[in-house]
Simulated assay, not measured.
Amino acid sequence: MTIKGTKSLLICILIVSTILVVFTSLEFLILKILGLQYESLWSLLLFFIVYGISEIPTNLFLSACLQALTTLDIIPSHTGVLALFLHIIDRLMASVSISQLGILVFSLVIGLVGWLSIQNDPGPPKRGSKEFEDYKKRIN
């Protein structure tokens, strides 16, 4: 690997790490306001690691399913669904606890942020539309 490639990699890692730290800090602050309790710093760190690792694939899977259901005209839009996911992790980790109201509010806040971030997404083409047929022709 060249020095230029190493610099690029380090800059990317720094940017991603900074974004993760900022979002994790904001989530911690919101959860602390909503009644987050933890036994040790290690249990809190483990909670955020499990939450972060499990949240990303879950959101990707849910987004793909919602877009597929939108494409098939089973649901009218994929932009109005809020995923309530945090309570599963809270139940699995006895050393970290959050009140039910805190889980609900946190999930709604995070869901609202996600919902607002995808409002301008064009979404998948509807089955039977010209754009859908064009995609179908390209695949075949």
Rank of each mutant, 00 (worst) to 15 (best):
residue 24 T to Q: 14
residue 24 T to H: 08
residue 25 S to P: 00
residue 25 S to E: 06
residue 25 S to N: 10
residue 25 S to Y: 06
residue 29 L to V: 11
residue 29 L to A: 15
residue 31 L to S: 11
residue 31 L to M: 14
residue 32 K to Q: 09
residue 33 I to E: 11
residue 33 I to M: 13
residue 33 I to T: 12
residue 34 L to G: 02
residue 35 G to N: 02
residue 36 L to V: 03
residue 36 L to K: 04
residue 36 L to R: 02
residue 36 L to F: 01
residue 37 Q to C: 05
residue 37 Q to R: 14
residue 38 Y to T: 04
residue 38 Y to M: 03
residue 39 E to H: 10
residue 41 L to E: 08
residue 41 L to P: 02
residue 41 L to V: 10
residue 42 W to T: 09
residue 42 W to K: 13
residue 42 W to D: 01
residue 43 S to Q: 10
residue 43 S to R: 08
residue 44 L to M: 11
residue 44 L to I: 05
residue 45 L to P: 01
residue 45 L to V: 12
residue 47 F to H: 04
residue 50 V to F: 09
residue 50 V to C: 10
residue 50 V to G: 06
residue 50 V to H: 03
residue 54 S to Y: 08
residue 54 S to F: 07
residue 54 S to C: 14
residue 55 E to S: 13
residue 56 I to V: 14
residue 59 N to D: 14
residue 59 N to Y: 14
residue 60 L to G: 10
residue 60 L to W: 09
residue 61 F to T: 10
residue 61 F to I: 15
residue 65 C to E: 08
residue 65 C to F: 04
residue 65 C to N: 00
residue 66 L to K: 08
residue 66 L to Y: 07
residue 67 Q to A: 04
residue 69 L to H: 04
residue 69 L to S: 08
residue 69 L to P: 01
residue 70 T to A: 15
residue 71 T to S: 13
residue 71 T to A: 15
residue 73 D to F: 08
residue 73 D to G: 09
residue 73 D to L: 12
residue 73 D to W: 00
residue 73 D to M: 11
residue 74 I to H: 04
residue 74 I to T: 06
residue 75 I to D: 04
residue 75 I to F: 03
residue 76 P to K: 09
residue 77 S to P: 01
residue 77 S to Y: 02
residue 79 T to I: 12
residue 81 V to E: 00
residue 83 A to Q: 11
residue 83 A to C: 08
residue 84 L to C: 06
residue 84 L to M: 13
residue 85 F to E: 11
residue 87 H to N: 12
residue 87 H to G: 05
residue 88 I to K: 12
residue 89 I to L: 14
residue 91 R to G: 03
residue 91 R to M: 15
residue 92 L to P: 00
residue 92 L to C: 11
residue 92 L to Y: 00
residue 92 L to H: 01
residue 93 M to H: 00
residue 94 A to S: 15
residue 95 S to D: 13
residue 95 S to F: 01
residue 97 S to W: 03
residue 97 S to R: 14
residue 98 I to S: 03
residue 100 Q to A: 14
residue 100 Q to N: 12
residue 100 Q to P: 10
residue 101 L to T: 06
residue 102 G to M: 06
residue 103 I to M: 14
residue 103 I to V: 09
residue 103 I to F: 01
residue 104 L to D: 00
residue 105 V to W: 03
residue 105 V to Y: 01
residue 105 V to K: 05
residue 105 V to M: 05
residue 107 S to G: 14
residue 107 S to C: 12
residue 108 L to M: 13
residue 108 L to Y: 03
residue 110 I to D: 04
residue 112 L to V: 11
residue 112 L to A: 14
residue 113 V to H: 07
residue 113 V to C: 15
residue 113 V to M: 13
residue 116 L to V: 07
residue 116 L to W: 05
residue 118 I to V: 15
residue 118 I to R: 15
residue 119 Q to P: 03
residue 119 Q to L: 15
residue 120 N to G: 04
residue 121 D to V: 01
residue 122 P to V: 12
residue 123 G to M: 08
residue 123 G to C: 02
residue 123 G to L: 08
residue 124 P to K: 09
residue 125 P to E: 06
residue 126 K to S: 08
residue 127 R to H: 12
residue 128 G to F: 00
residue 128 G to W: 00
residue 129 S to Y: 01
residue 129 S to V: 01
